[in-house]
């Protein structure tokens, strides 16, 4: 299983990737929405099952990325989880309306992240308690 981690902070990419790798994922990384779209195009038919998407990033923000992904039929199978410090009610509603499946507010504990994976049906069996 492959996951795409999108965040402009290397620290956050490393944190999320580390946890995903520990759960058995192979991870791809991108520093903004535009880079992420390029990574997705390169991945071709091997669409990641999950993208974690930061909101505030240079070049292309996470909300725009979600909107772009939703216009592409071939990327329909990918689950989109916002992982962002944007914590207002209206922002969460906006992201869900744009097509995000889950929303995790930073800061988050490792347990909260795996809880969200479980809600998406993306927590590998052996890691589920």
């Amino acid at each position: 299983m492959r996951a795409l981690v999108i965040d402009d902070s290397r620290t956050m990419r490393s944190l999320l990737s580390r946890q995903l790798v520990a759960l058995g994922y192979e991870t791809l990384q991108a520093g903004n929405g535009q880079e992420a779209l390029e990574v997705m195009d390169q991945a071709g038919a091997d669409v990641p099952v999950l993208a974690t998407v930061d909101w505030n990033m240079p070049v292309m923000d996470g909300l725009t990325f979600v909107q772009r992904v939703r216009t592409r039929q071939e990327w329909r199978s990918m689950s989109l989880m916002m992982v962002t410090t944007e914590a207002e009610y209206d922002q969460i509603v906006r992201a869900l309306a744009a097509g995000a499946h889950e929303y995790l507010i930073k800061p988050f504990t490792p347990e909260a992240f795996s809880d969200k994976l479980q809600l998406l049906g993306l927590l590998p069996e052996r890691a589920a308690q």
Partner: peptide
């Protein structure tokens, strides 16, 4: 990078306590 992400999280959550419509 780490300190940037820390202040981003603190600032973002403080923003959520302000009237909505602000940007970070």
């Amino acid at each position: 990078d780490a300190l940037g992400e820390l202040v981003n999280m603190i600032g973002g959550n403080i923003k959520s306590l302000l009237p909505s419509g602000s940007t970070l």
